[in-house]
Amino acid sequence: MRITLRVWRQKSRDDEGRMVTYELDDVNENMSFLEMLDVLNEKLTLQGEDPIAFDHDCREGICGACGVVINGVAHGPEVTTTCQLHMRSFKDGDVIEVEPWRAKAFPVIKDLVVDRSAFDRIIQAGGYISAPTGTAPDAHSVPVPKADADRAFDAATCIGCGACVAACPNASAMLFTAAKITHLGMLPQGQPERASRVVKMVNQHDEEGFGGCTNIGECAAVCPKGIPLDTISQLNNDLLSALASGKL
């Protein structure tokens, strides 16, 4: 199939950047979206042009490295990661517009590559259970009701790709933050730090320059791992009780 690509090209952090058009004639519908970009990059390299930079690693939808906005939608038309999107989701002759995640907290480094280290700092603020190696009691000493374990797991499947931020009209990272709050908050091991965790993580989230959540729901709609919107409600619930209890 024939595809026209309009891709965001930006040489470096400080460069202005612009959309550049490329034509590809020999796209196979079984290619993944990133393989299609590989083909374009091979072509560009042979022409002596700078290939398009994009983040990617596992290419099986779990590492969270890849992610671009395709035709205005984070990760494109299917609810999956960009690496798991295939060209059969497009038609012959389509014009496909490819842009990086856009948020002040995710500055563009080059082309489609953005800096998502803000997510690491949100985790550093409290997205963990303090359990130094060697201190653990037997794994069976605290049973966890299956429903809690399952909900924790559902939230824990977040891959930290940042699509939620890219899709959010407020550029809020609430879904990412809430997923971790819900994962750890559902487990008995996460209780001692539950109140301080939510306060510290939300503060860090705000400090990083992400917007506030206005419950629009675009984040959950594009999330490749289907993190549910009610995790944000869980975060709000935990935040309110943490503030009310005053035990931070």
Binding site: M19, V69, E97, A171, A221
Partner: peptide, 25 residues
């Protein structure tokens, strides 16, 4: 905050004019 976080562009921060009404909003 939203203006700051999206560099003043709100939900119009992408060049693509497709899917401007979002996925489900």
């Amino acid at each position: 905050r939203a203006r700051q976080a999206t560099a003043g562009k709100g939900s119009r921060r992408y060049h693509s004019k497709k899917n401007r009404t979002g996925v489900q909003r």
